[in-house]
């Protein structure tokens, strides 16, 4: 699905990622953990193709294609979707419009016909229920006036509708109360499947109680310094990053 090889990236001339390697297979759930400033968010932005994040060397292949050569929207249409840490507000643009436009852009990319408006609304309603969101959210501006928790739910709702092959979650758990965390986790678990992968980027172990990862990686100073199964997350929680970083 995704293969990152010796990835180096910098922001404003400052190296952040310094030789990162990661392989994510089909159907797998990976958790990337690490202290603040270790490069977690940079990795997400680089994978999504944000300007200003300069890849200086290394490669990333997505489903056998060169991901770094693709424009951001093509990456999305190919099935790589990022749930943002800080989803932006877009006043006046209704959620439902965005979802429909994005959904059809993806279908068009795959050479499929546009979806019928009625069918699409059915789909939306069903997915909205999974996220325990009120339907009125669909008719509000994208993230406009949403609380932090509502924004995160909205990000997962978009994933449920767009059904990416690789879902990339950037600190989606931060700022959520326990009930919202459960709803978000349920949404992500719904997304799991044989041909879908999930990469969770998080600072805290608690998300992993609800979304059980197949692999856990520790990111420090721009590289993955340790990998293991879910027990690694518990170890991090118990001993702190510092000890793991020093031991590695």
């Amino acid at each position: 699905m995704l293969k990152i090889t010796d990835l180096h990236a910098e922001v404003d001339g400052k190296p952040i990622l310094k030789g990162l390697n990661l392989e994510v297979g089909s159907g797998e759930v990976h958790a990337i953990m690490g202290p603040n400033g270790s490069g977690k968010s940079t990795l997400c932005q680089v994978l999504a193709g944000r300007d200003g994040y300069q890849v200086t060397s290394g490669s990333v292949s997505f489903e056998g294609q060169d991901l770094l050569a693709m424009a951001p929207e093509i990456r999305a249409r190919e099935g790589l979707l990022l749930a943002f840490q800080y989803p932006v507000e877009i006043p006046g643009v209704k959620n439902v419009y965005l979802l429909k436009a994005a959904y059809n852009a993806q279908r068009e990319h795959r050479g499929e016909p546009e979806v019928d408006a009625f069918e699409f609304l059915q789909l939306l309603r069903e997915r909205t229920r999974i996220m325990k969101m009120d339907e009125s959210f669909l008719h509000r501006g994208v993230n406009e006036g949403f609380s932090g928790g509502e924004k995160k739910r909205n990000e997962i709702l978009q994933m449920l509708v767009l059904e990416p092959k690789l879902a990339l979650l950037d600190e989606t758990d931060s700022g959520l109360d326990i009930d919202a965390l459960k709803v978000v986790s349920e949404g992500v678990n719904t997304l799991r499947g044989e041909d879908r992968s999930v990469v969770l980027v998080t600072h805290y172990q608690r998300l992993l109680d609800h979304i059980v990862p197949d692999f856990v990686h520790v990111l420090s100073d721009g590289r993955i310094i340790k990998s293991g199964d879910k027990s690694l997350a518990l170890e991090l929680e118990a001993n702190g990053y510092q000890n793991v970083v020093e031991a590695a």
């Binding site: 951001p72 929207e73 990456r75 999305a76 990022l82 877009i90 436009a101 852009a105 767009l162």
Partner: peptide, 10 residues
């Protein structure tokens, strides 16, 4: 960028 990341063209 948010909209590009949802697959829309610029």
């Amino acid at each position: 960028f948010y909209l590009l990341q949802r697959g829309l063209s610029e």
